[in-house]
């Protein structure tokens, strides 16, 4: 039950884009066409699905106070006092960069067409705030491994939905008469705001 709750929360209520503004860079840059947005969205889901649990393991068994004591043989000394959490940022971002590299290789191998269209944006997933953000939220909220996995997956789906929706809007926008200064970024921001209002109606839902 708790898992379903976390899933729903991360997809709709605490949507990475609408509630936390995470992953805005690629959200704005790669949302001009639905097809590319679709590919990037999938890649983000994929990366999130793996990085969040991997980072959870790192956090639980290496970084937290006393984490090393869980598996290091006691003969090597007393590890209960060791707190490596100051390395959290570096470790998380390293995992993410490695996972992104992996996804890049997989996509290149199995779908050269998608690889071509995502182009330079794939490496940018590494600096997509949504990915690092979910890992940090996961660590801050003390999720269990199952909860962390669901949270990562849900956040990915939420981000995917948001970018698909905005790219659909932007495809239609080409035919409308937007004031010059608002073209592109400005109108996208305003539309995102309106979509955020729509997503606010999910607030307070829990199972």
């Amino acid at each position: 039950m708790e898992l379903i709750n976390i899933g729903i929360k991360s997809i709709f209520i605490e949507n990475m884009i609408f509630a936390y503004f995470l992953g805005m860079c690629s959200y704005l840059a790669v949302s001009k066409k639905v097809s590319t947005a679709f590919g990037l969205g999938l890649a983000v889901i994929f990366v999130l699905l793996f990085t969040v649990p991997v980072n959870w393991l790192l956090d639980e068994y290496v970084l937290k106070e006393g984490a090393l004591a869980k598996w290091m043989p006691a003969a090597l000394g007393d590890f209960t006092e060791i707190n490596l959490s100051f390395l959290q940022f570096i470790m998380f971002i390293a995992t993410i960069a490695a996972m992104v590299q992996l996804v890049e290789m997989v996509i290149e191998k199995f779908s050269p067409a998608l690889y071509g269209s995502l182009g330079i944006f794939l490496p940018l997933i590494a600096v997509n705030c949504a990915i690092l953000g979910s890992s940090l939220f996961m660590a801050q909220r003390d999720y269990s491994l199952a909860e962390a996995t669901v949270f990562g997956f849900g956040s990915g789906i939420g981000w995917f939905l948001a970018i698909i929706a905005i790219s659909a809007f932007r495809e239609k926008l080409k035919y409308s008469n937007v004031p010059d200064g608002l073209k592109g970024l400005g109108i996208t921001m305003l539309i995102t705001g309106l979509m955020g209002i729509a997503f606010m109606s999910f607030m307070g839902i829990s199972i």
């Binding site: 996208t188 955020g196 209002i197």
Partner: peptide, 11 residues
């Protein structure tokens, strides 16, 4: 709420 940020920034 987040919505306000989007709208202010858009403007």
């Amino acid at each position: 709420s987040p919505v306000g940020a989007f709208i202010i920034l858009g403007l």
